[in-house]
């Protein structure tokens, strides 16, 4: 569109002669051409004279007080014929008048005569805004810092396992035989606590009730423990209770694994040896 505007060649040549860049010279020459054509059409250029604005304000005030019947008390100091500025009430009235509300309407921003049920703006209560608290934290890049640590841990654990597997053979007993109950009959080590419980309680109690309760308790733990602090000094009871829980199963597992022999009798490992296969 700007290409359609003719350049003022005189101005362009003068500016180029002054050493201005071609881009600036072209823009200024075009602006000069537009200005010239407007003056020819009889338009007045430059800022509008102040009297015009004051007159428009006067007209608006008189029409408002005439139409609405409300005497407008101009809060602004009435110097120089009407102050020259709209008061906030006047501004609001002018906005609503231009929107066609004809005074006061229930909703802001909706023309009274329209069928629109939507508007563009709404007031949002503070509770409706998600509170984002970004705390400054001491952070480091995942690569290389974390990934290197993880890689080293992985290599260490992998090589430890490889060395163990090289020297220690996994057990393989004789062929399974349903009719031949072995003298020492034990579950895998992680179930030995459970098997030890079975030595004291009926299976329905030890196997199902106690274990079921323990699992449910573990799962509901975050909902039971309402203490918001994670500091050890603030959660002595929780730490103590959990330590007892771990110790309970740990001791049962150790007894079941190492101090139980043939027929699941209590025998010391230094008397009959470890009745334990991993």
């Amino acid at each position: 569109m700007s290409d359609e505007v003719q350049m003022d060649q005189e101005v362009y040549d003068r500016l180029i002669g002054e050493g201005k860049s071609e881009r600036i010279a072209r823009a200024k020459a075009k602006a000069a051409a537009v200005r010239k054509s407007k003056i020819e059409e009889g338009a007045t250029l430059g800022p509008k004279p102040a009297e015009e604005a004051t007159k428009a304000l006067e007209e608006f005030r008189s029409s408002r007080s005439g139409g609405g019947g409300v005497a407008t008390k101009t809060a602004a100091p009435a110097d120089g014929g009407g102050g020259g500025r709209l008061t906030p009430e006047e501004r609001a009235a002018r906005v609503s008048a231009s929107l066609g509300n004809g005074g006061d309407s229930g909703s802001v921003g909706v023309p009274a005569a329209s069928d629109h049920t939507h508007r563009l703006l709404a007031l949002v209560p503070p509770a409706g805004i998600q509170q984002v608290q970004s705390k400054q934290q001491d952070k480091v890049y995942t690569w290389p810092h974390l990934l290197l640590v993880e890689f080293v841990a992985l290599l260490a654990a992998g090589s430890l396992l490889l060395v163990a597997s090289f020297f220690l053979d996994a057990p393989l007993g004789s062929l399974a035989n349903v009719n031949e109950v072995p003298a020492i009959n034990k579950a895998p080590w992680y179930f030995m606590g459970l098997q030890e419980l079975l030595a004291y309680f009926h299976p329905a109690v030890a196997g199902i009730t106690i274990v079921g309760a323990a699992v449910l308790l573990l799962m509901s733990l975050p909902y039971v423990d309402k203490n918001p602090s994670a500091k050890p000094e603030n959660r002595k009871f929780a730490n103590m209770a959990f330590t007892f829980f771990l110790a309970f199963w740990g001791i049962l597992t150790i007894i079941g694994s190492f101090i139980r022999g043939a027929g699941y009798e209590w025998v010391w490992p230094w008397v009959q040896g470890l009745g334990f296969v991993l």
Binding site: S174, A176, N185, K186, A187, F191
Partner: peptide, 15 residues
């Protein structure tokens, strides 16, 4: 499928 496996699993599944 050795004796160790069979009887360990028997203990577990009995529960």
């Amino acid at each position: 499928w050795d004796q160790l496996a069979l009887w360990a699993v028997t203990v577990g599944t009995n529960i």
